[in-house]
Amino acid sequence: MRQSITVKAWCERYLTERGTGWSDITRKSYHYLVRCHIVLGIGEIALEQLTSQRIQRFYDWLARGGLGGYSIRCVHLLLRRCLNEACREGLIPQNPAKSCVVPQPEPLPDIPLRLGQIQRYLIAAEKQNILPLVYVGLTSGLRQKELLSLKWSDFDGQGRIHKGKRLLAIDQKAMRLLRDEYSLHPDREEVFLNPKTGRPYLLHEFYYLHQKVLKAARLHPISFRELARNCKGVEL
């Protein structure tokens, strides 16, 4: 007879066995979602006792606790992947997460920022001591995961960043900010680290950091990706 396994134990096993091919940021983000949300809400339930109704109550509980629709969707997608694997292993007959209704993230207003508003954002970022991070992110064309995992070895010494098959140019201000950053931490492999953890920012950490800067700059909600689009062709 197969021994019962809890949701916590199975998710942790899934991350350990399947995470070898993931990027460092993806792996840490998944571990965060499991540790801080899934384990706290349904971690002690046995896999075979986990129902769609129980998962739905779990999502509702996350929403009542203030977790946003985007974050709940991230939890759902990871939980569904874990339970899909449990189905393939024969631990459960079907995936109870598939029929759950996930809160949809509220669409952000498509209101482009004016130059003065973008400047306010950069000033607020400088006060938070993260101007190099956000300026490079807004002007280089890097994806967020690429930005957060950026290493000094990704630069070619001519103001360009190599990421996979892409070669991205950075402007003079970005180069100056990066030189200053390097002078502060010449022995560090990564370009940007979270001072609270001493490690690269995770996606959710960067998300909340962006929200904090928006609030300090008194700007309406806008995604970092959309903000970067606003910065194209603008002299900052």
Rank of each mutant, 00 (worst) to 15 (best):
I161H: 09
R64I: 10
D156M: 12
S140H: 04
I72V: 13
E126F: 02
Q158F: 14
C100D: 04
E146N: 10
L177A: 04
E106Y: 12
F155V: 04
A174G: 12
Y121H: 03
L83W: 00
L50P: 03
G116K: 03
I170E: 02
G41R: 04
I42H: 00
F58S: 09
L148T: 13
W152K: 01
K173S: 01
P105W: 07
D60G: 09
C100I: 05
I111W: 11
I55S: 02
V75E: 08
Q117C: 08
V102K: 03
F58A: 08
I72C: 08
L122E: 08
G66T: 05
R88L: 15
L142Y: 13
V101A: 13
V102T: 13
L40C: 10
P132E: 05
Y70S: 10
L167T: 11
K165Q: 11
F58Q: 11
D60Y: 06
M175D: 05
S99T: 15
A63D: 06
G159H: 05
G90V: 09
L83R: 02
K173F: 06
P103T: 15
P112S: 09
K127D: 12
P93Q: 09
Q104M: 15
S52E: 10
P96I: 03
R81F: 00
S71H: 08
K151F: 04
R73F: 05
D171E: 07
L168Y: 15
G41T: 01
K173D: 01
R120C: 09
A86R: 03
K173W: 05
R176Y: 02
E89G: 03
S140K: 02
L62F: 04
E126H: 14
Q172H: 13
R160K: 15
E106L: 11
I72T: 07
Q144T: 14
A86K: 09
D60E: 08
C82A: 14
L113G: 02
K145R: 12
G141P: 08
Y59K: 02
A86Y: 01
V101G: 06
L62K: 04
L150R: 01
N95I: 00
R120W: 07
I45F: 06
V136I: 15
Q172S: 14
A174Y: 09
L91H: 02
L177N: 04
G116I: 05
L167A: 07
Y59V: 01
H76K: 00
R81E: 10
G159P: 00
C100M: 09
L78Q: 10
A174P: 09
G164H: 01
K173E: 06
E106P: 04
Q104C: 12
F155K: 00
R114W: 01
S140T: 02
P112I: 10
A63T: 11
V75Y: 03
A125V: 04
Q53K: 15
Q158I: 09
K127T: 00
L50H: 02
V101H: 05
A63K: 07
L83F: 00
L131F: 01
R80F: 05
E146D: 12
P109G: 05
I55M: 03
I72F: 08
I92K: 05
R166W: 07
A169H: 06
H162Q: 03
P103G: 15
Y70F: 05
L133N: 06
N95W: 01
D156F: 12
D60S: 13
I123Q: 13
I118Q: 11
G65P: 15
P132Q: 03
Q117I: 06
S153E: 15
S71M: 09
C74K: 03
Q94G: 00
L138S: 06
I92H: 04
